[in-house]
Design a protein around this nucleic acid. Structure first.
Lengths: 209, 209, 209, 209
DNA sequence: GATGAATGAGGATTCATTCAT
DNA sequence: TATGAATGAATCCTCATTCAT
C-alpha cells in the first residue's frame, strides 16, 4: 500500500524529485504535523492532487524524502570511502561526511533529527530499510577494523555500530536543537578520538562493572 | 500557559500521578497520535474532563509524563551514585541503571524512545529542562573523571556527554524498535568498555583525520 | 422547571440578590456566552455549586437578573409617576427615567441591550412577563392620553407603545454600542417632542401612504 | 481574519449564495446556537467541510447572511425610492417596504430580530457596516425633509433616525415574537402617521420636560 | 446550607484524500 | 497527466451541572 510508485522514467522521475525537495523544505520549515499537503504542493508549484500521482499518501511522502535523501547520502559516502584503503581513515571519512553533509543541508538536518521522528511509523520498513544500509556500512567498517586488528574483536559489532551512530546522531540532534549556532564539524575530531580509543584492540581493560 | 498546575497537596498529587501513569500506559499502547484523551481517562478510571483539571491539554500531559518520570529516574540515579566514590564506578552504575530502569519499565522505554519524540514541541522547555538535569549529571561525572586523571582532559565535556548519552539512547532505541526481543542490560559491559577506553587519558592518540 | 425558587425569607433573599448583582456585573463584563458560572460565583464570593441552590440553571439566572432589575425599575417608575397628574408630564417622566436609570447603571444597560438578547429563550415567559408590565404602563399612559384628548384616538395603542418603547430602546442600544461616549439623557427632549407631536390629537393629518 | 473570502466569480458566487440561503433557513428553524454546521450543510446539500471553503467559521456565516440579505434589502429599497420625488412619499415607501419585505420573508424576519442578536459580535463591523448603510438612507431622508421644510429642523437627525428605525424594529420584533399571528404591514399607516406628525415642522411645541 | 471536585455531553473545525473535468 | 473543489471522518476541550462531603 505504501509507496506504490517509484518512477524510473526520466520525466516522471524529475517531477518526483521536485516534490521530494519541496517536501523536504516544507517539512523543515513548518514541521511535519503543521505542514499541510497543500503547502508542499505550493512549494513545488503544482496542484495538491498531483502529489497523489507520485506518492500514496503524506506519510509515504515523508518516508520517500528520507529514502531518497538517504540513498543520495549513502551513495556519496560510498564514493568517498572508495578512495581510502585504511579502515581507520574510512571511519574518519564517515564521521566527517556525516557532519559535513548535514551542516551543508540544514533542512535535511532538521528533517532527519526532528520531523522524521514525528511519524507514527518511524519503525516501519519505509524508514528502517534505508537506515539499515547505513548501519551496514558502519558495521562492515567495524568488522573490517576488527579483522585488521585495529578494533577489539571482543566488542559486539552491533554495539559498536550503535555507539558510533548514536554518538553522531546525538551530536547532530543537539546542534539542531540549539539552532545550529555552532559549527557541527568541529566536533568530528573529538568524536573520532573517543570512538577510535574506545574501540581499539590493545586497550581492552578489565570491566569492573 | 502550558502546564499551569503541578499539584503539591497530597490528595491532588495522588490523582495527578495516577493520570500520569495511565497516560504512560496508554501512550505506550496506542502511540501518542492514536491515543485519544478518552482512552487515557478510561485507563485512569476517571472522566475525560477531569484530566483538564490537572493538565492544560494533551501535550502538557505528554510533557508532564516525561518530567515526572525523569524526576523519578534522576532521583533514583542520584541515590545510587551516592554509594560510590570512584568516578569510573559511578559511570558504570549510571549506564547499568539507564539500561536496567528501561528494561524494567517497557512502557516508559517505548514512551521515551518513540512517543515523546512525536510531540511538536520536543524542544520546548517542558522536555528540555528535565533532560538537561540528566545531561548535567553525566557532564559532572565526565569533569570529575577528567580532574581525577581518568579521562582525557583534552576531550570536550559536552562531546563526551553526547557520546555517552547518544550511545545509550541509540542502544535503547534499537532495542525498543526490535520489540525488546533481547536483553538490554547485556549491552552495558560492551558500552562501558568502549566509553571508558574512548575517554581514558593515556590513550589520547594522534588524530589522523 | 425554570426558576424553581424565588426566596422570600430575608436571609435567603439577601444572598439571592447578591448573586443577581454579581451576575449582572459578570455578564456585562464578559458577555453572556463568555461568562462562566464560575466567574459569577467568584464575583459573588461563593462556591459554584451554591448558585444552583438559588437558581435552576444559568439561563434562569439570566432571566432572574432581568426580572429583578425590571421589578426594581418598574416600582421606582411607578413611585415617580404617582407624583404627576398630567398624562403628558407622566410621559416625560417615563422617558427621562428610562434614560436616566440606564445612564446611571451602565452594567444594566449593557445587560439589557446586549447580553439579555443572546439567550435562546428571549421570548419565553421569563423575559416576556416582566417586560409586559412595562409595556402595560406605557399603554395605560397612551390610553389615558387618548381619553383626555391629548393623543389621537385613531392611533392603535399597541402601535403607539411600540413606537414609544422602540424609540427609547433603539436610542439606548446605539448609545451602548457607541460605548456610552455621549450623554444618553440629552436625547430625552428630542424624543419627547417627536412622540408628543406624533401622537397628538389635533394634528391627525391626511395619510397619503 | 473574519470573512476572508467573498467570491465574485459567478460559479463560486452561486454556491456561496446557496449556502447563505441554507444558513438563513437553518438558523431561523433551529436558532443560532442550536443549529449545528452539519444542519446547514445538509440543508445546502453539501459536505460540512465545504462551508469552510466559503466562510471562515460559523459566526462569519451568520454575519455574511446578514450582510448579503441587507445588501439585497438596501438595493431593492433604493430602486423603489428612485421612483419618488416627494420626500414624504419616500418615507412612506421605506416604511411599507421594511414591513412588506419582512412579511414576505419570515425566515429573514426571524433571523434579523432574533438569531442575529445572539451573536457575541453583534457590534462588530460585520454587522455594523451594512446596518449603517440603512441608517444612512434614513438619515438622508430626514435631512432632505428638514431642508424641504417638512420636518422640524430643530430635531437632531440621528435621534429622528433612531425613532424611525427603532419604531419599525420594535414592531417587527413584537410581530415575530407573537409568531407572526397578524399582518405586519397593517401597522404601516399608524406608524407613518406618528412619525410624520412627530417630525413635522409646524408642530414643534414647547417641551415642558 | 455550602462547597468545589468531578462529570461527560456536545460540536466546530481541519485537512488528507478523491475524482470529475 | 494535471487540476483543485469537494469531501467527511475524527477529536480535543469547555463548562454547566451534580453530589458526596
Amino acid at each position: 500500500m505504501m509507496n506504490s510508485k517509484i518512477p524510473v522514467e526520466s520525466r516522471k522521475r524529475e517531477k518526483y524529485m521536485a516534490i521530494i525537495d519541496a517536501a523536504l523544505e516544507a517539512f523543515a520549515e513548518y514541521g511535519y504535523h503543521n505542514c499541510q499537503v497543500a503547502k508542499i504542493a505550493r512549494q513545488a508549484g503544482i496542484a495538491d492532487g498531483t502529489i497523489y500521482l507520485y506518492f500514496a499518501n503524506k506519510e509515504d511522502l515523508l518516508v520517500s524524502v528520507f529514502r531518497e535523501k538517504m540513498i543520495e547520502f549513502i551513495s556519496q559516502l560510498k564514493v568517498l570511502l572508495e578512495d581510502y584503503d585504511d579502515v581507520m581513515e574510512k571511519l574518519s571519512v564517515l564521521v566527517h561526511f556525516h557532519f559535513n553533509h548535514l551542516e551543508k543541508n540544514p533542512s535535511l538536518a532538521n528533517f532527519l533529527q526532528i520531523q522524521l521522528r514525528q511519524s507514527d511509523n518511524y519503525i516501519r520498513s519505509g524508514i528502517a530499510d534505508p537506515l539499515k544500509q547505513y548501519y551496514q556500512i558502519i558495521e562492515e567498517l567495524v568488522d573490517e577494523a576488527k579483522r585488521q586488528g585495529y578494533f577489539n574483536a571482543a566488542i559486539n559489532t552491533k554495539v559498536a555500530r550503535e555507539v558510533i551512530f548514536g554518538s553522531m546522531d546525538e551530536i547532530v540532534s543537539c546542534w539542531v536543537f540549539n539552532n545550529r549556532k555552532y559549527s557541527l564539524s568541529k566536533n568530528a575530531a573529538d568524536v573520532l578520538t573517543i570512538l577510535r580509543n574506545g574501540l581499539t584492540a590493545e586497550k581492552s581493560l578489565n570491566d569492573k562493572a
